[in-house]
């Protein structure tokens, strides 16, 4: 038996943040208006993606140190789950941008680099499928993954800050913490992030368990 309290916690936090996200009070803002509530849905997607990619890097390093196949499988499945969240993040971002920046894709640096970061991980998944030999594939994929992670962090958090961007927190714009000084929003935002991270981790464990059974069946 395994403990599943954190799954329940994740579910409760996500349900709470969705209900409170629609009903709790938000500061009156120009242009954004009520769409500021997207903060509780769009941003946690990216946080869960980053956590899942960190889990993946951890397992890649583990794989290189002890050559246990299980770590390789964990690394792949957490990237799979992370990519799901990344795609959701980029779609919700584009919808939000359509109604606040005027265009779904205005080739803003933040959008472009987020897309490139996702492409890095698509490349990881494609690279894996291109190699037939199991051990070689696992080793090359693990090394690629360790290089991809810092590049993703730089693309998402460093480069957009160096040039003009419409995205909050970049290019001299204030982050959203400038808006939620009344701390009403923090009460919903932080639980939303934690909840979605837990749900993301849950999705990753499900993927891993299915693939572990698949592996046993074929051998």
């Amino acid at each position: 038996m395994y403990k599943s309290w954190w799954k329940i916690l994740g579910a409760v936090l996500v349900v709470y943040s969705t209900i409170a996200g629609f009903l709790a009070s938000v500061p009156a803002l120009p242009i954004l208006h009520q769409s500021i509530r997207n903060l509780y849905f769009h941003v946690p997607m990216w946080f869960s993606m980053i956590v899942l990619f960190s889990v993946s890097v951890y397992h890649s390093i583990k794989y290189l140190s002890n050559n246990n196949e299980e770590h390789d499988m964990k690394a792949v499945q957490s990237v799979n789950a992370g990519v799901l969240f990344g795609i959701l993040g980029i779609i919700t971002g584009a919808i939000w941008a359509k109604f606040t920046w005027g265009q779904a894709w205005s080739f803003d640096v933040k959008q472009n680099f987020a897309a490139i970061a996702l492409l890095l991980y698509f490349a990881y998944l494609v690279l894996r499928n291109a190699i037939d030999e199991d051990q070689k594939r696992a080793k090359i994929a693990a090394i690629y993954n360790i290089f991809a992670f810092p590049m993703m962090v730089v693309l998402l958090f460093v480069l957009p800050r160096l040039s003009d961007s419409l995205h909050p927190g970049n290019g001299g714009n204030p982050g959203f913490n400038a808006y939620d000084l009344d701390s009403h929003m923090r009460m919903v935002f932080y639980p939303a992030c934690l909840g979605w991270i837990l749900i993301g981790y849950w999705i990753y464990t499900l993927l891993f368990r299915v693939s572990a059974i698949e592996k046993n069946k074929t051998v």
């Binding site: 629609f22 954004l32 208006h33 009520q34 769409s35 849905f41 919700t92 919808i95 939000w96 109604f99």
Partner: peptide
């Protein structure tokens, strides 16, 4: 787009939540 941009843009949030659920 007119409907979504109306009502203080609350429907933008609804669409985003729907996208996440679909995903």
């Amino acid at each position: 787009t007119d409907t979504l941009a109306g009502s203080e843009k609350i429907y933008v949030v609804v669409v985003c939540v729907a996208v996440i659920l679909l995903g």
